[in-house]
């Protein structure tokens, strides 16, 4: 009961937050990024955390959603919700092809092959004409019901909705047959098979679910930013960020990916916008023209992936179960 009350407060807070902070587009933008990364990482977690199958190519499913939606909206001006549904289908087809081939192999082959598949998707998109190639796709206008899609608010709620759905699915899975089976596969495949678990079927099920949710987020992202190209939605860097968020927060836990996103997205934003450097310089701690000052202003802004890397190494060394692992007592 305590948990339900806590969750209700959390959900109400998330719903009311835009009203409290008003129409500050910068802050709303960061919140949207946080929600999106939390949802992406949670969707990845179904496959990576629960089934133990590390996908390094989730950008492929994100991009599949984004490109499908953007192409259909710009060319045929279809209802965005319909386009998101088609995006799910496209991502699911890619997932099924990948899974049905690669899950026959064991060990780290799935991880390697998932990178290969994502790169094939990226290079194909880059070289086809209907995808806009290297130019990407620009969306000038989009409409849904009476929503003001020039404002960021509808996308805040869109991302929030997908996050809540993803977390609900994960919470349900954990206590269901499928969830137990995925965890059994993660722990020991031979033991799992000997207990009547069809390993291929359940791995594919997890991949399909994960890919479908990821594609919805890709679609939303495209409609929100209104411009996509391969470096924004199909890059290996995106796949890695999704994984790092889950690892740092806590792989295979319900809230780990959310905590990871709450921490890393603002951190990346601070580095990108040079907040830390500016603050140190303004406080007079570092001279703007000194070597350190130049580094802070010039290079650190490009270093957020490096900082992710350092945090990950520290996490692996000192918090192998992620930040959430700190708060869990050992059984």
């Amino acid at each position: 009961m305590k948990q339900i009350a806590f969750l209700s407060v959390l959900a109400a807070g998330a719903v009311l937050l835009p009203l409290v902070i008003g129409e500050n587009p910068y802050v709303i933008g960061i919140l949207i990024s946080m929600l999106m990364m939390a949802a992406l990482s949670s969707a990845w977690n179904i496959l990576g955390g629960y089934a133990g199958q590390y996908s390094f190519g989730h950008a492929a499913y994100f991009g599949a959603g984004a490109y499908t939606t953007m192409i259909l909206v710009t060319l045929y001006n279809l209802n965005p919700l319909f386009c998101i549904a088609v995006g799910i289908v496209v991502a699911s087809i890619i997932a099924l092809i990948t899974g049905s081939i690669v899950f026959r192999l064991r060990g780290h082959y799935f991880g390697l092959a998932s990178i290969a598949v994502a790169e094939v998707v990226r290079l194909s998109v880059l070289n086809f004409n209907f995808t806009g190639g290297a130019q990407g796709i620009l969306l000038t206008d989009v409409a849904l019901w009476n929503l003001d899609l020039n404002s960021k608010i509808p996308f805040y709620y869109g991302m929030l909705l997908v996050l809540v759905v993803t977390l609900s699915i994960t919470a349900y899975l954990r206590r269901s047959k499928t969830g137990y089976y995925l965890q059994a596969i993660r722990e020991d495949q031979d033991a799992a098979a000997s207990l009547g678990i069809n390993i291929y079927f359940y791995k594919n099920k997890a991949l399909l679910l994960s890919a479908a949710l990821t594609s919805v987020l890709g679609s939303l992202y495209g409609l929100y930013i209104r411009f996509i190209d391969t470096s924004a939605v199909l890059d290996l860097r995106l796949s890695i960020e999704i994984i790092l968020t889950a690892i740092i927060g806590g792989v295979g836990t319900l809230w780990g990916p959310v905590i990871g996103a709450l921490l890393l997205v603002p951190l990346a934003e601070m580095l990108r916008s040079n907040l830390i450097g500016d603050m140190l310089i303004k406080a007079g701690l570092v001279s703007e023209t000194s070597g350190v000052g130049l580094f802070l202003k010039g290079s650190l802004a490009n270093a957020h992936v490096l900082v992710y890397g350092i945090i990950t190494v520290l996490c692996i060394l000192y918090l192998p179960k992620g930040i959430l692992g700190l708060f869990r007592r050992k059984k």
């Binding site: 965890q183 059994a184 000997s194």
Partner: peptide, 8 residues
Amino acid sequence: VKPLGSLT
């Protein structure tokens, strides 16, 4: 033996 180690 092949226990599913992290499960109860």
